[in-house]
Simulated assay, not measured.
Amino acid sequence: MDQSKTTLKMEWNGNKSGSGTVEAGYLKTEIAMPQSFGGTGEGTEPKELLVTSAATCFLMTLVGTLEARSLAVDSLKMHSEASVSKEEGFKITHYPAIVLPAGATEEQIQSADRTLAAADRNCDVGNMLKKAGVQIDISGDVSVSKIG
């Protein structure tokens, strides 16, 4: 099994209403406690970072899967949402939108649609979160560009 190592550098100034920074490779961002926990909310917080990690992993896995299937893509956009409830626990939903070039065949459309499930199965971060009881749903859309 391949091993990878991630190193973070973090700094915090002040108490709960203070702020800090986190750096890792190309990532450098301000962090702060959410207002709901007595912080300022003027920086990213742990749930945002967790959902960002899951979404980025899914998106990059999707891009790799589309490329492996030799599927040309005109546009790929995505947004993700996370919610916490007593009924569903922690849930993340990814909403990818794939636009294939004009003239894409039905076979290419179906193949692109199947990449959504394949990317979900192969995303390491998503798989780790699922093992921890996080529900991850994919609500994707595959369409064909009208401009040819």
Rank of each mutant, 00 (worst) to 15 (best):
T44Y: 05
P101D: 06
T56E: 06
E106Q: 13
D124R: 03
N13D: 14
Y95W: 03
T105N: 02
S53F: 06
T65I: 08
I98W: 03
G14M: 07
G38I: 12
R69P: 03
V134M: 08
S70C: 09
L116S: 15
E48S: 07
N15C: 06
Q108P: 05
I136A: 02
G41E: 14
I31P: 05
E81A: 08
I147R: 13
L59Q: 07
L100N: 01
N122A: 03
D113K: 15
Y26I: 08
V99D: 02
A132C: 13
L71I: 14
G43A: 12
E106N: 14
S111V: 02
V84Y: 08
G140N: 07
I138S: 05
T105H: 00
T44Q: 05
N127F: 03
I147C: 09
D113W: 09
A118R: 11
S145R: 02
M60A: 04
E81L: 04
T93D: 01
T6Y: 08
L129R: 00
K86P: 06
L116R: 13
G20M: 06
T29G: 13
V22R: 04
P96A: 07
T52Y: 04
G18I: 15
L27Q: 06
L59R: 09
M78L: 08
R121M: 07
V144W: 11
K28R: 09
L27A: 11
P46F: 04
I147L: 13
G41C: 10
V142R: 00
I98V: 15
C57K: 00
S80E: 01
